[in-house]
Simulated scan of single mutants.
Amino acid sequence: MAVTIKDVAKLANVAPSTVSRVIANSPRISEKTKVKVREAMEKLGYHPNFHARSLANKSTNTIGIVMPSSANKSFQNPFFPEVIRGISSKAYQENYGLYLSTGQTEEEIFQEVVHMVQGGRVDGIILLYSRVNDKIMPYLQQQKFPFVLIGRPYNEEIHSITYVNNDNYKAAKTVTEYLLLLGHRNIAFIGGELDFVVAVDHKKGYEQALKNAKIPIREEYIISHHELEQGGEDAIIQLMSSSVPPTALIGLDDIMTFGLLKMFSEMGIRVPDDISIVSFNNVLISELSSPPMTTVDINIFGLGFEAMKLLVEKIKEPTKEVKSVIIPHKLVKRQTCKALNRSEKKDE
């Protein structure tokens, strides 16, 4: 015969309603009582029937996770598994499962979100990216559906959306200033597609640091990730063959920068002797690359964990005020940057 809540309540010497609240991780129950009830559940081999609870509570105990492209492509970038690890760590504490989007195009992703909401498949949604003129966020706001964004909302939405982010403008400005302190004046920048807000913020930070140093912004030094994907080696050859080639480069992320290191090696361009490189994210590959990358640690796990924490708060208290949480970043100095000697510094 299956073990019931009443059996657990009897062994733990509490009311059945207390057991239900422990299963729901109610803050009204003390930690001491939670421990006692969970020990009784474990001893009896009791497993909550979440499907039955969902029907009764009109809750799925499931969170939707929306990625910027298909799961197959996204998981090639270590950012996404790591941010999902942060989300799932907090989800486990709160007894939530995860539902991942798998759409291949923007329209497929949007339709999948509509199915999640209208079909009652999830209790809330975490968006793993912020896109300029995105359709999903206005839809979720219109539906009054709980969601949290990882990233900064586009300007006009910033005061109405709960989000978790790094200060990407400041991070890009800081790494540009770091290269300036090392004596570099000819600094190239490879950014992401400008319909993603993180790419907009990185570019603004880079440009502001140069303006503050009274260094002209060279358009030929700015390459988009899309150009690099399409042209690859051609884009880098064009950059390094300019009349005044850059002595330093800021990369979009560690994966892309890893490809650059390989490309430079094949071209006979030495890092950091011929060119210094700074990247973003500090995923495992950055430490294992040759040479190990100087990069910005953005605490990817913390982004996911905090986003899940905020979403649970929104689900439990729908009228809770909008929040924004900025996760600190730090520059991790390794071996892809070098200070220029006076003789190596070139005039603008």
Results as ranks from 00 to 15, higher is better:
residue 140 L to K: 11
residue 118 Q to V: 13
residue 130 S to V: 02
residue 125 I to H: 01
residue 124 G to V: 04
residue 135 K to G: 08
residue 134 D to R: 01
residue 118 Q to E: 15
residue 129 Y to A: 11
residue 142 Q to P: 00
residue 138 P to E: 06
residue 139 Y to D: 07
residue 129 Y to E: 12
residue 103 G to V: 01
residue 130 S to A: 13
residue 121 R to Q: 14
residue 125 I to C: 03
residue 116 M to K: 04
residue 114 V to H: 06
residue 137 M to V: 09
residue 117 V to Y: 02
residue 114 V to L: 03
residue 121 R to I: 13
residue 105 T to F: 00
residue 107 E to G: 00
residue 121 R to N: 10
residue 105 T to D: 12
residue 96 Y to K: 07
residue 136 I to Q: 01
residue 135 K to Y: 01
residue 119 G to C: 08
residue 138 P to W: 06
residue 94 E to V: 01
residue 117 V to S: 07
residue 107 E to I: 02
residue 101 S to L: 09
residue 121 R to A: 14
residue 124 G to C: 06
residue 110 F to R: 05
residue 136 I to V: 11
residue 114 V to I: 15
residue 130 S to L: 06
residue 136 I to S: 07
residue 116 M to C: 06
residue 129 Y to Q: 02
residue 122 V to D: 08
residue 126 I to P: 01
residue 128 L to K: 06
residue 129 Y to V: 02
residue 104 Q to W: 00
residue 94 E to Q: 15
residue 117 V to D: 07
residue 98 L to F: 04
residue 112 E to Y: 02
residue 111 Q to W: 04
residue 140 L to W: 09
residue 106 E to W: 00
residue 109 I to T: 14
residue 104 Q to I: 10
residue 99 Y to R: 15
residue 124 G to S: 04
residue 119 G to P: 05
residue 93 Q to H: 11
residue 114 V to Y: 01
residue 108 E to Q: 06
residue 131 R to T: 10
residue 97 G to T: 11
residue 126 I to A: 07
residue 131 R to W: 08
residue 107 E to K: 04
residue 133 N to C: 06
residue 127 L to G: 01
residue 127 L to Q: 05
residue 104 Q to K: 12
residue 106 E to T: 03
residue 101 S to G: 14
residue 100 L to C: 09
residue 129 Y to W: 09
residue 142 Q to M: 14
residue 109 I to D: 13
residue 120 G to H: 00
residue 132 V to A: 07
residue 95 N to W: 06
residue 104 Q to Y: 04
residue 136 I to T: 08
residue 133 N to M: 08
residue 94 E to D: 11
residue 120 G to N: 04
residue 96 Y to D: 12
residue 135 K to I: 11
residue 142 Q to T: 14
residue 125 I to S: 04
residue 120 G to Q: 05
residue 130 S to M: 10
residue 99 Y to H: 14
residue 131 R to I: 12
residue 124 G to L: 06
residue 109 I to W: 00
residue 110 F to Y: 12
residue 106 E to F: 02
residue 111 Q to N: 10
residue 133 N to A: 12
residue 137 M to A: 12
residue 136 I to W: 00
residue 106 E to I: 02
residue 117 V to A: 04
residue 106 E to N: 05
residue 106 E to H: 03
residue 125 I to P: 03
residue 136 I to G: 05
residue 122 V to Y: 00
